[in-house]
């Protein structure tokens, strides 16, 4: 395992509301970082409702899970699932037949402490909600990425989550806006990036446009960031660069052209 940096950055990816694209973001950002040569571990803390293994296409390789690690049934090394594509990307699976109470915040901190010396990035996939699972997920993290959609209920939940992260003394909280549709924003039918920043008052980490390719890549178990032509991949790649400490301008969201739409609707391309 080739660790690039002496220190390890621990991110929690959270949102409050479910279905905004947390797990998709975790899968893509971790894959993107691994592609850049970093050693990365993703931790699925959605105990009882796991999805990260499916999104990463690693469901057939899972043997042990994090609950078995903390209960001493296996070692942490044994539970880590190696990615198909990148040798320095690992996943620590959630347990499917257990629940959030089978893990404590202290245990999560302990697992992270053991992983830190070997990895550049630890990315924690937080379950939806503000209960125990959320508390467990934020306990070990230094930085938070709040994922939201340009939609009132998602923004309200994001605001609540940001408040809770601030109470938990997080200094580094950044916003990832997922599934924005520039054509709808322009028509006045969707909240814009500026609107979201005004409401939530936090720094922007990235903007990912709505992209039907995400459904297709999820069907295949291949993160869309690997399909470099897609607009979502470019957006996730920019976020990866920013996580590496580079300054990347925010891309101006191109609206789909008439020909692009025609092609898409008639099944050409891709």
């Amino acid at each position: 395992m080739a660790k690039k940096n002496p220190d390890c950055q621990v991110y929690v990816v959270t949102s409050g509301k479910g279905g905004v694209g947390k797990t998709t973001a975790v899968a893509n950002l971790s894959t993107g970082l691994a592609k850049q040569g970093y050693s990365v571990v993703v931790m699925d803390l959605d105990i009882g409702l796991k999805k990260l293994d499916l999104i990463l296409g690693l469901e057939n390789r899972v043997i042990y899970d994090i609950v078995q690690v903390v209960e001493g049934e296996c070692t942490l090394r044994q539970a880590l699932v190696k990615d198909k594509r990148f040798p320095d990307l690992f996943m620590l699976p959630a347990a499917q037949t257990r629940n959030k109470d089978d893990l404590t915040a202290e245990q999560v901190v302990e697992v992270c402490k053991e992983l830190r010396p070997d990895f550049d990035f630890i990315i924690i996939d937080c379950p939806a909600g503000i209960e125990k699972g959320f508390q467990n997920a934020i306990a070990a993290a230094d930085k938070a990425i709040v994922v939201t959609n340009p939609e009132v209920s998602a923004v309200r939940d994001a605001d609540r989550i940001i408040g809770m992260l601030e109470s938990a003394e997080f200094r580094d909280i950044k916003l990832l806006v997922n599934r924005i549709r520039p054509d709808m924003v322009r028509r006045g039918d969707m909240l814009s990036i500026e609107d979201l920043i005004e409401h939530l008052c936090i720094e922007l980490l990235g903007v990912v446009p709505e992209d039907s390719g995400v459904v297709i890549s999820t069907n295949r178990g291949e993160p869309i960031i690997l399909d470099e032509k897609s607009s979502a991949a470019q957006a996730f790649n920019n976020v990866v660069q920013r996580m590496m400490g580079k300054e990347v301008p925010f891309m101006t969201l191109q609206e789909e052209s008439f020909w692009g739409k025609l092609k898409r609707n008639f099944g050409f391309g891709r």
């Binding site: 028509r187 006045g188 039918d189 969707m190 909240l191 814009s192 609107d195 409401h199």
Partner: peptide
Amino acid sequence: PSSRSRAN
């Protein structure tokens, strides 16, 4: 007013 401004 647009639905965006209502949402805001």
